[in-house]
């Protein structure tokens, strides 16, 4: 039992910290795009690197934020029935869902993205547009990292659900 509590708390702490840092990227995105607008329309020039940085930041937000969003339970559910379930029934849905859907899917994404990243690293892949950003493998790695964080939070969701089902945890504020 103790193990499940430790892993849940660890996941929460990691994803809270990552979520905090990632949320600053949203402000950075606003600033970078506004800067691009300013240079393009006022100074009459614009760099390909800045334009690429924009979608790099965008990708960071949704991938790194996925685990954090799960911690907040903000991933949309069809709650027609779910909202009427008892806490134990909800916990059962979350336990089975995590073990059968979420965790295997995370493993799948991580496993398949590794060769994709290694390949990019191996060939020193850069942006195909002149003046674009180098080191494509770094952004590609974020797929694995994001789904790794999601996996971790999925473990927490499964653990908490298990504790709820075992009756040692009445309040389940994560599901």
């Amino acid at each position: 039992m103790k193990f499940f509590i430790i892993i849940s708390n660890f996941a929460d702490r990691v994803n809270s910290a990552v979520g905090y840092l990632t949320s600053w990227i949203t402000t950075l995105l606003v600033v970078v795009v506004s800067y691009d607008v300013f240079t393009r329309y006022v100074l009459k020039n614009s760099s390909v690197a800045v334009q690429e940085l924009e979608w790099h930041l965008f990708a960071l937000i949704f991938l790194l934020g996925a685990g954090y969003t799960l911690k907040l339970d903000n991933h949309v559910r069809v709650d027609v029935l779910y909202s009427r379930f008892t806490p134990k029934a909800k916990a059962l849905v979350n336990l089975v869902g995590s073990l059968v859907f979420l965790l295997p899917f995370c493993v799948l994404v991580i496993k398949t993205s590794v060769p994709f990243i290694i390949n990019s690293y191996h060939f020193h892949e850069v942006s195909p547009d002149p003046g674009g950003l180098p080191n494509r493998w770094m952004l590609k790695s974020v797929i694995s990292i994001g789904f790794g964080l999601l996996f971790l939070q999925g473990l927490a969701l499964a653990s908490r659900s298990l504790l709820t089902l075992a009756g040692s945890r009445q309040e389940d504020n994560n599901g």
Partner: peptide, 18 residues
């Protein structure tokens, strides 16, 4: 204008938009 043509336009003072 993608690719090398874009680089030429940029060098000539143009703004390349993706």
């Amino acid at each position: 204008i993608p690719g090398l043509g874009g680089k030429v336009i940029a060098k000539a003072g143009g703004t390349v938009v993706l």
